[in-house]
Design a protein around this nucleic acid. Structure first.
Length: 288
DNA sequence: AAACTTAGAAGGCATTGCAG
DNA sequence: CTGCAATGCCTTCTAAGTTT
């Protein structure tokens, strides 16, 4: 039910994740989990908050603080403010320092009216990717995040359990994307017999105008399409051919899930049309 | 290399507003 | 009045040069 068509998106397509959001987030909020490498207090705070958001339904700043501090109202009061500042950034002495909302890792997910109006916050898809990339999430935490964000990324997180049962540890290829690798380089064109390179390139073309802002459902489509397409690559890029085992797994996922199948092959059709039209154009030159 | 400078971040305090 | 939320202003801290 939570929809965001009226919200202004502060994030763009996957290319802008790779080029802008991710590098900015790494610089400002840490490129490694604060548990693993020395980080500033600010980075630790941010990462802790992101994890809270990752593991819960949309929250108000107050409820975020309460998750950590339960009944200690005074402490919650202080923490809550800290959280809000991290979200909205701060404007001090004429200077604006960006917060998680400005960078696009967190989005406003509607307003709760229980007591007055209060904003609900959750991760954006960029935020989900950053968490996968940087926070040291356990298997169990990722499962919870998938469940909480199933509506936001329906074709992947909405089918997480079934994907896990079919793909095993391969489900985590999403982390490749999270780490900023889009796999649209020419090198992969020979890594598979399937037109992986062509599809991923078309995926870039289709959403190229959405660099500044993209609707969340379009971004979810872009991510999901990337996700299913990369399964057409062997796990190690060295081995040239997909094992028949992999292909079988892939078919199995689509067999029972017609909605997914229609959606994915709808995209494949689009890509095919795109390339065909272009070749038709050049063919015409031959006839002159 | 210790002492000093300084911009920006973090922390603290105050105020406002609203619902029960 | 209490619990919650939002924001501005002031002070302290920190990380980085720069000077001596």
């Amino acid at each position: 039910m939570s929809n965001n068509s009226e919200n202004v998106a502060f994030y763009g397509n996957l290319y802008s994740y790779k080029l802008y959001t991710r590098p900015t987030a790494l610089r400002m909020f840490g490129s490694k989990s604060y548990k693993k490498s020395k980080s500033s207090k600010h980075q630790e705070n941010i990462q802790k908050m992101l994890k809270i958001l990752a593991l819960n339904d949309p929250l108000t700043t107050w409820s975020m603080a309460k998750i950590q501090l339960f009944e200690d109202t005074e402490a919650v009061r202080v923490k809550e403010k800290e959280y809000r500042r991290m979200l909205v950034g701060r404007r001090d002495r004429g200077k604006k320092t960006p917060g998680l909302l400005d960078i696009g890792l967190v989005v406003n997910d509607g307003i709760r009216y229980t007591k007055g109006a209060s904003n609900l916050y959750r991760l954006s898809l960029h935020g989900v990717l950053y968490c996968l990339d940087v926070l040291d999430m356990t298997e169990k935490e990722i499962d919870i995040m998938a469940q909480k964000y199933a509506k936001v990324l329906p074709f992947v997180f909405g089918r997480w359990n079934s994907l896990k049962s079919h793909l095993g540890s391969d489900v985590h290829r999403l982390k490749v994307l999270a780490s900023g690798t889009f796999l649209d380089n020419i090198q992969i064109s020979k890594a598979s017999n399937f037109p992986v390179y062509e599809i991923l390139t078309y995926l870039n073309v289709k959403y190229q105008d959405d660099f500044e802002t993209i609707s969340e459902s379009d971004l979810a489509d872009q991510i999901s399409c990337w996700y299913y397409t990369t399964f057409l690559l062997p796990s190690q890029l060295r081995s040239k051919k997909m094992s028949s085992v992999n292909t079988a797994k892939w078919k199995k996922i689509f067999e029972r899930d017609l909605e997914l199948k229609d959606w994915y092959f709808g995209f494949v059709d689009e890509a095919e049309k795109f390339y065909k039209a272009r070749f038709t154009t050049i063919r015409k030159l031959k006839k002159i």
